[in-house]
């Protein structure tokens, strides 16, 4: 049986740990709040650009744009969004597992796909396995703004345009609520599900529908990626918050158990001492 001092040490170290996890939970809660707000602020832009894109792409019928065309798939691109840091429960492993499975089942060789890894966890995972990572992005801030990630999105969309890959999927954690996030898989390019809930309006185009699509579609695709990133950030902080809350709860439970053992051991020691004293006194009589 562990000595009294050992148990005391375990209690103290568990206490320290629970303080840390508690602090992490609170920082994550603050970041989560901001993340959700950022994601909300993005919604009006997304809705609007979707509406306009849909009305132009559908309304003007015969327009042809490379980003709307399905071409034979020689290479598939995968964007994988994870966090830079761990301790977020199953947040990262869920996404990575899903992508890994998809790649394993769809492709036979490294030449058939290309990975764009966002976040250190994804990068490390795929680089370590020698999979074809063509772009890696780490160190995105917790509250990204559009300007700071524009290079990434335009590089990605550019790779589709110059036929580095012929279709593009994106994998990220979609934010449902503070306690539930779900891995979401979306086909980003070529753009396919252009539809709008609003009534389509027929616009005048200045200068022409083709030229507008030329500018609009890349922006639309970029904003889809940005939207996914905001979604993923909100999920990350929510996941970390939940994970840390669980850790804190578990630590409390452990402290309770240790205290019980500690008290029992202390009582046993006292009883034994008394028994010894009584025994000693009896022997003297």
């Amino acid at each position: 049986m562990a000595s009294l001092r050992d148990i005391k040490n375990s209690i103290n170290s568990t206490k320290k740990m629970s303080q840390i996890t508690k602090a992490m939970e609170m920082t994550s809660a603050a970041k989560w709040n901001r993340g959700v707000m950022n994601a909300k602020a993005f919604v009006p832009y997304m809705e609007k650009i979707q509406e306009v894109t849909a009305s132009i792409a559908i309304g003007s019928g015969g327009v042809n744009h490379p980003m709307l065309q399905h071409r034979p798939v020689k290479k598939t691109g995968y964007i994988v969004m994870t966090s830079d840091r761990g301790l977020a429960g199953a947040f990262n492993s869920n996404v990575i597992r899903r992508v890994h499975q998809a790649i394993q089942s769809r492709h036979k060789s490294n030449d058939e796909f290309a990975i764009i890894a966002i976040g250190r966890v994804a990068r490390d995972f795929f680089v370590k396995r020698g999979m074809n990572v063509i772009l890696e992005i780490v160190g995105i801030s917790d509250q990204p703004n559009f300007e700071s990630i524009k290079d990434i999105t335009s590089a990605t969309v550019g790779m589709f345009t110059d036929e580095t890959f012929d279709e593009l999927y994106i994998y990220y954690n979609h934010y449902h609520s503070a306690i539930s996030q779900e891995v979401s898989e979306k086909k980003l390019l070529p753009l396919s599900d252009l539809s709008s809930s609003h009534k389509l309006i027929s616009y005048e185009f200045e200068p022409s529908a083709e030229e507008i699509l030329e500018v609009l579609l890349p922006q639309y695709a970029e904003s889809l990626i940005y939207g996914a990133l905001l979604d993923s950030k909100a999920s990350e902080h929510a996941a970390r918050m939940t994970a840390m809350r669980n850790a804190t709860d578990n630590a409390k439970e452990m402290i309770k158990n240790y205290s019980l053992i500690y008290n029992r051991a202390r009582q046993a020691a006292i009883t034994q001492e008394i028994a010894e004293i009584v025994g000693g006194a009896a022997a003297l009589e």
Partner: peptide
């Protein structure tokens, strides 16, 4: 001005 026809321009 108000009442412009629907239009899109970059």
């Amino acid at each position: 001005l108000p009442g412009h026809i629907p239009m899109v321009a970059p």
